[in-house]
Nucleic acid binder design. Structure first.
Length: 945
RNA sequence: GCCCAUGUGGCGGAAUUGGUAGACGCAGCAGACUCAAAAUCUGCCAUUCGCAAGGGUGUGAAGGUUCGAUUCCUUUCGUGGGCACCA
C-alpha cells in the first residue's frame, strides 16, 4: 500500500468542507484563540509560493491550538478594493467587480489546495456593499467625533457643542486652527456655516486643502510612486503640486496613545522602532527670532536650543508664508526661480536626494536674541512646511546637513564646542562643554538644553514644545474602485448621510477616466453627484483609500453576517484582541498604525472593549525569487552558456554560428525559472517558450549544457521567477508543500525560493508512511508494547515539537520530525502506541496524511478536527527522559579533546578525580597539575593548564 | 544621509540562557539491491598537514571581555529592507 497523496488530500479536503469541520462558534465553553493572517489583495497574477508562507505558519498554529483544546477563530478574506483592478478596467473596460470576482475565485482554488483550516463562512470582502456599509458607518462615527485632550479620548461632536455653548473653546484648543478662540457668547453669534467650519477643524475625520501631485496632461492626481523626476511615470508628462480639497484622519491626536500602546503589545523591537520613528515624538522648544526691518518674527522649532549661539543661518520651507514678504528686491528673481524648481519636485524626491544641496538666500536677516547677531535667512527644499513651524535654525558645527549646506554656500561656521569640532564634519554630540555661548558658557550641552529653554520662557520669546513628525493621514483618493464617502456637500458644508441610508453603493460608471478638475471618475455621473431635490447639494466624489477597509476587518470576522452592527459588542468582547497576527513588514507604518487608530476610536466611543487590535505580531520574511538568465549575443539569435562568455571559440562553433570570437556584447534576458533545472536550461522547452520566439535559437554550450546566470530578486511575474504553488502541490502533495515551506528557514527571515529541496521533505513523508504500511506487504503497524527507548524517542519529540511550535520555530520542528522518523525506522518500531501520538503532533503540519493514517489504524481521535472539549495533544512525560549519566565534552583551555561519561550527580571533586585519570587528559597535562578545572553540571568540563 | 535587519560548508539552514560549530535537508561522491531504471538502503562529505594516530585553522574582517564567544562589547566591510533629509 503506497502513499497516494493526491487521493488522500482530495478525500479529506472534501470531507472537511462537507462537514464544515472548521466552522467556529461564538459560543463555546473552551478558551478562545484568534489567529489572523493579513488578508491578501486578490491580484490577477494569482498566488505565488511567497504568499502561503505566512498562511501555512498561521494554519499550523491554529491547528495546534485547536488540538490543545482552544476555540480557534481562523478566518480569511480579501482586501478587494484597489488600484490595479481600476487600472485594468481603464485599459479593458471590464468592471473591477468582475475582474475582482474572477481573481478571488483563482485565489480561493489555490488556497483550497493547500488544506487550510479557515472558517470560510466568515469570509469578508472589503468591496462588498454588506461590508463597506460598515466602513462608511465607522467613517461617520469618526466624522462625528473630536479628540478631548483633557479626558484623552475621542468624544462625540454633540459633547463639544455643549462645551462651546457653555464656555467657548478656552479649554479645548482647536487642533486644526490654533487661531480660533471664542467665548460661549461669541460661539452663539456665529452663523451655522461658521459653526460647521469650526467644527470641521475639530473632527477626527475632516476635510481640508492639501497638496497633491497633479498631472495636467493626464487630468488626474498621481501617487508619489507614479511620479518620477517630476514627470508622470506613464507618458512622462509634467507633474506639479496642486491644492485640492482632501479628507484626512486626525491621527496626530492619537500620536501619544499610539506610542504608549506599543508598550502593551508584542511587536518585534524592530517593528516598534519603525512605528516610533514614524510617530517621531521629539522634545524641544519653539522660539521666535526677530526679523530685521520686518514686524513679525520668524518662529522656529528646535530640539537643540543649547546650540543657540552656534546659529549661522536660518532655513525656511519654500512654501512658508513669510517667504514672499521678507524676500529682498535683489533676491526676488533668484527666489522665484528656486520656487519654480521646488514646485516641480515631488515630495519623495525632495526628501530622498541627499547629495545634491540646493537652496536660495532670501536677502533677509533674523536677529539672534542673545547676541544680536544678524543671521541670513535661506529657503531650501529639505525643510518641509508641514513639520514643526516649517523653519529651522541651522547650526553647522553640530548638524551634518547644516554643515554641508554652509560649506556649499560658503557660510562662515561658528564653533561653540571647542575641540569637539574639527572643521571637517559636524559633531552632533550633547556631551561637550559650550564655548562662545554667552550665558551657557561652560555648561555641558545636555544640561544647557533645559537652561536655554528656561531663559527663552523667561524672556517670553520661546516655549518648551513637544513635536511629532507624524502628519494627519490623507483619507481620500480621486479614484473609482473604493468606498464612496457618505457625505453631501451643501454650500461648502459637508453633511453626513444618515446611517439608515447606508450603504451608499458605488454606482456604475461608463468610463473609469478622471472627472473634471481632477475629481475622481464618480464626478462624471451627474445624476448621481447632483441630488434631484436640492440643486445646491452635491455628493463627495472621491473615494476612501485602500487602508479604509483593512483598518477594521479583524472585527468583522467576529460577527461577519450582522446586518445591524459592524460587530456585536458581545462578539468583540468574546474574541477580543487578535492573539497572533501574521504578515509582512511592508505594512509596518501604514495598515498597522491605521488599524490601531481605528481600534482606539471605536474603543473610545464604547463600541468595543479593547484599544489595541493585535496582541502579538509575527512578521514573515519576504520570499525572493531566484531569477535565471540567458545571454544573447547582441542583434543575433545566438545564446552563450554563462561560462562561455569571453571564452575561446572552437572551429565547429565558428562555422555553425558565423561568430569569430565570444568576446562580444551580450544581452541578459530573463527566462522562466520553470524551464531551468538548477542552472541548466532545458533547451527544448526554451525553443517552444513564448510561442516559439526562440525556436531558431543557436547555442554555444558548455560540456553539452546551457548554464544560466542567476540573481536573487523580488518575485514577480515580469521577471519570470515566480513559482506557482499549484504545480508543487500537484507533484508532491499539500502536506509536502506545507512542510517544505516551513523547512526553508525561520518564518521571519527573508530568503530566496528554491524548489529543489522539496524532494527531501517528500521522502520524509513517504518514510513515515512506511512505518505504517509496506508497499508490498501491506499493514506494518502493530499493537505491541513500546520499549523504553522507543518511548524516549517519542517523548523527546513531543517536547521539542511543542516548544518549537510555541515559539514559531517551524523549520526546526520539521527537522525534529525527520529525526524522530529516522530513529523509529532504524529501531524498526511500528507500534501504534508510539505512532498514534506522533500523528497528532504532525497533524498541524501535515494534516492530510495524519488524518488518513489515524483513520487507517482505527484511531479514536481525529487530529484534523480536534474538536473535543479538552486537549487531545500528546502530553510530554519528563520522567521518560531522565538520565543518570551524561557524556561530557572535556576541553583543554576551551578546546574539546575528549568525551567522558560522568554520572549526573557527580560533584566537583568526583569530576576532578575522573578527569585526571583520563589518558587523553594526562597526555595534555604532560605531568603538570591543571591550574583549574571548570565543571558546569549537565554542560561541559574545561581543564585550564 | 538616517533607521532596521543580516553575514556560519557547494546550497537552505541548526546551535533556545556564553558551554562539543555545522543538527536536519538538498546537491555531490562511493557502494548495496536490480537485466536495467525508479524507489529504497549503507558509508563519506568545512578546510589544511598527515599513511595513520593525531594536529593546525575555521561562524564577513580586526580587536576586546571570558576558563570558554556563532552568541556579549568596540571598530570596520558587505548584503537585504525601510524612509517623510524631521531639525
Amino acid at each position: 500500500m503506497e502513499y497516494r497523496f493526491n487521493e488522500i488530500e482530495q478525500k479529506w479536503q472534501a470531507n472537511w468542507k462537507e462537514n464544515k469541520v472548521y466552522r467556529v462558534s461564538n459560543d463555546s465553553s473552551k478558551p478562545k484563540y484568534y489567529v489572523l493572517d493579513m488578508f491578501p489583495y486578490p491580484s490577477g497574477a494569482g498566488l505565488h509560493v511567497g504568499h502561503p508562507m505566512g498562511y501555512i505558519a498561521s494554519d499550523i498554529y491554529s491547528r495546534y491550538k485547536r488540538l490543545k483544546g482552544f476555540n480557534v477563530l481562523h478566518p480569511m478574506g480579501y482586501d478587494s478594493f484597489g488600484l490595479p483592478a481600476e487600472q485594468y478596467a481603464l485599459e479593458t473596460g471590464q468592471h473591477p467587480s468582475v475582474t475582482t470576482e474572477k481573481n478571488i475565485t483563482t485565489f480561493r482554488s489555490q488556497l483550497d489546495k493547500i488544506g487550510f483550516s479557515y472558517d470560510w463562512d466568515r469570509e469578508v470582502r472589503t468591496s462588498e456593499p454588506d461590508y463597506y456599509k460598515w466602513t462608511q458607518w465607522i467613517f461617520l462615527q469618526i466624522f462625528d467625533s473630536w479628540y478631548n485632550r483633557i479626558s484623552n479620548k475621542a468624544e462625540r461632536i454633540a459633547a463639544l457643542l455643549e462645551i462651546f455653548e457653555l464656555e467657548g473653546n478656552q479649554h479645548h484648543v482647536c487642533p486644526g486652527d490654533k487661531t480660533y478662540q471664542f467665548s460661549a457668547e461669541q460661539w452663539k453669534l456665529f452663523t451655522d456655516n461658521e459653526k460647521q467650519e469650526i467644527l470641521m477643524e475639530y473632527r477626527l475625520s475632516f476635510s481640508a486643502y492639501g497638496e497633491v501631485n497633479w498631472c495636467e496632461a493626464l487630468g488626474t492626481v498621481l501617487a508619489n510612486d507614479e511620479v518620477v523626476n517630476g514627470v508622470s511615470e506613464r507618458g512622462g508628462h509634467l507633474v506639479e503640486k496642486k491644492k485640492m480639497r482632501q479628507w484626512y484622519l486626525r491621527i496626530t491626536e492619537y500620536a501619544d496613545r499610539l506610542l504608549e500602546g506599543l508598550e502593551r503589545i508584542e511587536f518585534s523591537d524592530a517593528m516598534k522602532e519603525m512605528q516610533k520613528n514614524w510617530i517621531g515624538k521629539s522634545q524641544g522648544a519653539e522660539m521666535d527670532f526677530a526679523i530685521k526691518n520686518f514686524p513679525t518674527p520668524l518662529r522656529v522649532y528646535t530640539t537643540r536650543p543649547d546650540t543657540i549661539y552656534g546659529v549661522d543661518f536660518m532655513v525656511v520651507a519654500p512654501e512658508h508664508e513669510l517667504v514672499s514678504q521678507i524676500t529682498s528686491a535683489d533676491q526676488k528673481e533668484e527666489i522665484e526661480k528656486y520656487l519654480t524648481y521646488v514646485k516641480s519636485r515631488s515630495e519623495r524626491e525632495r526628501l530622498a536626494e541627499v547629495k545634491q544641496i540646493t537652496g536660495c538666500f532670501t536677502g533677509a536677516y533674523a536677529i539672534n536674541p542673545f547676541d544680536g547677531r544678524e543671521i541670513p535667512i535661506w529657503i531650501a527644499e529639505y525643510v518641509l512646511a508641514g513639520y514643526g513651524t516649517g523653519a529651522i535654525m541651522a547650526v553647522p558645527c553640530g548638524d551634518q546637513r547644516d554643515f554641508g549646506f554652509a560649506r556649499h554656500f560658503n557660510i562662515p561656521i561658528t564653533n561653540i564646542i571647542g575641540e569637539h569640532f574639527t572643521g571637517e564634519a559636524a559633531n552632533p554630540t550633547k556631551e561637550a562643554i559650550l564655548h562662545h555661548s554667552g550665558f551657557l558658557n561652560g555648561l555641558m550641552m545636555k544640561d544647557a538644553i533645559g537652561a536655554a529653554i528656561n531663559k527663552l520662557e523667561e524672556l517670553g520669546i520661546g516655549t518648551r514644545k513637544v513635536n511629532f513628525r507624524m502628519r494627519d493621514a490623507g483619507f481620500s483618493r480621486q479614484r473609482y474602485w473604493g468606498e464612496p464617502f457618505p457625505i453631501i456637500w451643501t454650500d461648502g458644508i459637508a453633511l453626513p448621510l444618515d446611517a439608515a441610508e447606508l450603504p451608499l453603493e458605488l454606482p456604475h460608471v461608463a468610463t473609469y477616466g478622471p472627472g473634471p478638475d481632477g475629481e475622481g471618475p464618480l464626478a462624471n455621473i451627474t445624476d448621481w453627484v447632483n441630488l434631484q431635490d436640492n440643486k445646491s447639494a452635491r455628493r463627495e466624489t472621491s473615494t476612501m483609500p485602500g487602508y479604509a477597509g483593512s483598518s477594521w476587518y479583524f472585527l468583522r470576522y467576529m460577527d461577519p453576517k450582522n446586518q445591524n452592527a459592524f460587530c456585536d459588542k458581545k462578539a468583540s468582547d468574546y474574541w477580543g484582541q487578535v492573539d497572533i497576527y501574521i504578515g509582512g513588514t511592508e505594512h509596518a507604518v501604514g495598515h498597522l498604525l491605521y488599524s490601531r487608530m481605528w481600534t482606539k476610536i471605536l474603543f473610545d466611543l464604547g463600541y468595543i472593549g479593547h484599544d489595541e487590535p493585535f496582541k502579538k505580531l509575527l512578521n514573515q520574511g519576504m520570499i525572493q525569487g531566484s531569477s535565471r538568465f540567458v545571454f544573447r549575443v547582441r542583434n543575433t539569435n545566438i545564446f552563450l552558456s554563462s561560462n562561455r562568455i569571453e571564452s575561446a571559440i572552437s572551429e565547429d562553433e565558428k562555422s555553425s554560428t558565423g561568430l569569430t570570437s565570444l568576446s562580444c556584447e551580450v544581452d541578459q534576458i530573463h527566462v522562466d525559472v520553470n524551464m531551468v533545472d538548477g542552472v541548466e536550461l532545458d533547451l527544448a522547452q526554451f525553443k517552444k517558450w513564448k510561442n516559439g520566439e526562440y525556436a531558431s535559437a543557436q547555442f554555444i554550450l558548455d560540456d553539452g549544457k546551457y548554464i544560466c546566470g542567476v540573481e536573487t530578486e523580488k518575485m514577480s511575474k515580469s521577471k519570470y521567477n515566480t513559482v506557482n504553488p499549484d504545480v508543487l502541490v500537484d507533484k508532491f502533495g499539500a502536506d509536502t508543500f506545507r512542510m517544505y515551506e516551513m523547512f526553508l528557514g525561520p518564518v521571519e527571515q527573508s530568503k530566496p525560493w528554491d524548489s529543489k529541496g522539496i524532494e527531501g521533505v517528500h521522502r520524509f513523508l513517504r518514510k513515515l508512511w512506511r512505518l505504517f504500511f509496506d508497499d508490498l506487504k501491506g499493514k506494518a503497524w502493530n499493537d505491541e508494547k513500546p520499549t523504553d527507548a522507543e518511548l524516549k524517542v517519542l517523548h523527546r519529540t513531543i517536547k521539542k515539537i511543542e516548544e518549537d511550535t510555541e515559539r514559531f520555530s517551524f523549520n526546526t520542528a520539521v527537522s525534529s520530525f525527520m529525526i524522530c522518523v529516522n530513529e523509529l525506522a532504524e529501531m524498526k518500531c511500528h507500534k501504534k502506541e508510539i505512532l498514534e501520538p506522533l500523528l497528532l503532533l504532525l497533524s498541524p503540519y501535515a494534516p492530510h496524511i495524519s488524518e488518513e493514517l489515524c483513520s487507517l489504524i482505527g484511531s479514536t481521535v481525529s487530529p484534523a478536527l480536534g474538536d473535543t472539549e479538552v486537549s487531545i495533544y500528546p502530553v510530554f512525560n519528563p520522567a521518560l527522559l531522565v538520565e543518570s549519566s551524561k557524556e561530557y565534552p572535556v576541553s583543554i583551555n576551551g578546546k574539546v579533546r575528549t568525551n567522558i561519561v560522568i554520572a549526573l550527580d557527580a560533584t566537583q571533586t568526583d569530576v576532578e578525580e575522573i578527569i585526571l585519570q583520563n589518558e587523553v587528559i594526562k597526555k595534555w597535562l604532560e605531568g603538570n597539575a591543571p591550574k583549574k578545572i571548570i565543571y558546569v553540571k549537565n554542560k561541559m568540563v574545561n581543564v585550564v593548564i
